[in-house]
Design a protein around this nucleic acid. Structure first.
Lengths: 255, 255
DNA sequence: CGCAGATTTGACATTCTTCAAGCCCAGTGG
DNA sequence: CCACTGGGCTTGAAGAATGTCAAATCTGCG
């Protein structure tokens, strides 16, 4: 039954929100959630055809970000969350002293921007590590949909909770593990995420610099480099710049 | 308008969920959200009287946890989230090697258990630091309410996003700051959270050990102790065991 | 082809941990 | 009531891990 309390007018059109954003492209038919290859990564698996129609009505635009440019910056008004469509991003929080901390790397199919819900503006910068594109998901419209579709509501809750879990895993690394263990865990983690997207688990191209990896893992770039060298000496990996080949996955997992 | 898609039967009675939990106490009239002193900390500020009625119907029980005992443990089935009613908790994630990382301290009015939504079971242990009690919020019932009450939906999203923001701040500390800076930031943070609850900002009792603080901040207990001693020498604080008095808040903030 | 930025490596400095000893304090039992 | 005890805390000295600085490659891009 429709509750008497639910009387607020929440209707904003998708167009209205999309227009507020620069550099957006209207999605063609090929770019709809209903036939997107990444669907199973960003969206609930058990949506009906009708549900997908409603989703397609909300997620109507994408945005292209060139390497080094930002999707949003600290303090920007929060309007939408994003799903990485192609390419990759880093998220960075800045300390008043000017020091930066990379808080995450985000590849295709992963969400971005959930931090902004809390205070209505973003608390970090999202920077493209290569030429990339995202789907724009107007958050107010998503909230409307979540009030009507139980599976979508639960999915959004899982997305956010997943981010909380991911971060506490990272805190474990930063607080408890040696530089060697952290770099190994980082490589294993990248490998499994890429594998989940159909890429090779053993051979891949890192899009971020040693400095960015170091910031993420709480160490200096020289230390990252030394660990890579050490793993190479131990026969665990091969590296050639940003190209990485994992020779002994179990060995790496057991570091 | 009620959407045709919203047809799933989501009705589980609050009693049913509450009974699944041991050690629960049925709330008396005094213990209802509608007249709880912590209301403004856990709940949206702009609920109508009717809305509070609906909330009271969902949050019908509390649970008491003795010092050292757990509210939930890693792997426990996820059913409910919790709001700390009195006392305090730590959350701890365990590494396979047996090492522990404290991922948070939670005091009155703060949420607990949001990590469990992601995979349907908890990913950390929540341990009481003193005799404590929590309000039990059956998550499935909360989701039902969120589909009907826009303000409640948005509030839950803010809670989760707030947790994400909190954790990225902690990652900044762990990754970028010296032991001295971390301990100073920890004291300032505790002070402001206690002040928000009406306690003194300058004088308080830490409920956790040096070891737990150290785990949280990614350092050894001896280092925590040394930093406390250093701050004392510098005239920033006075300590007497777990009792802390901040003598120079600005000095502490600028460490 | 040549440069600018990224990476690797070495030598040395610093921070934090480890180990060890003693102290303080709250709770307990005689 | 008081001495005892054990956990928690503090402090010192020595050592290990990581950071800092510097120089020599390497690599991709224009």
């Amino acid at each position: 039954m429709l509750s008497p309390y639910r009387t607020e007018n929440t209707d904003i059109s998708a167009t209205q929100v999309a227009q507020a954003n620069a550099c957006v492209t209207r999605k063609g038919n090929a770019a709809r959630c209903s036939n997107c290859a990444l669907r199973r990564l960003c969206m609930p698996t058990d949506l009906s055809t009708g549900d997908f129609g409603r989703l397609d009505a909300i997620i109507t635009s994408t945005r292209h970000i060139k390497k080094g440019e930002s999707l949003y910056r600290t303090g920007n008004d929060f309007q939408s969350i994003y799903a990485v469509r192609a390419g990759s991003f880093k998220t960075v929080v800045m300390h008043r002293s000017g020091r930066e901390q990379v808080t995450g790397f985000h590849i295709a199919g992963e969400p971005l921007g959930l931090d902004g819900i809390y205070g209505g503006s973003h608390t970090c910068d999202a920077i493209a590590l290569e030429d990339s594109s995202v789907c724009i998901i107007p958050f107010q419209l998503l909230e409307v949909l979540c009030r009507e579709l139980k599976v979508m509501q639960h999915h959004v809750h899982k997305l956010m909770s997943g981010e909380i879990v991911r971060e506490s895993g990272l805190m474990m690394m930063l607080g408890n593990m040696s530089a060697e263990e952290r770099v190994a865990a980082f490589l294993v983690n990248m490998s499994s995420r890429l594998a989940a997207r159909g890429y090779s688990a053993s051979e891949f191209h890192l899009r971020m610099t040693r400095d960015e990896i170091g910031s993420y893992l709480g160490m200096k770039l020289e230390t990252v480099s030394r660990m890579f060298s050490k793993f190479h000496r131990d026969g665990l990996i091969d590296t050639r710049g940003k190209q990485v080949c994992i020779l002994n996955m179990d060995g790496l997992k057991n570091v």
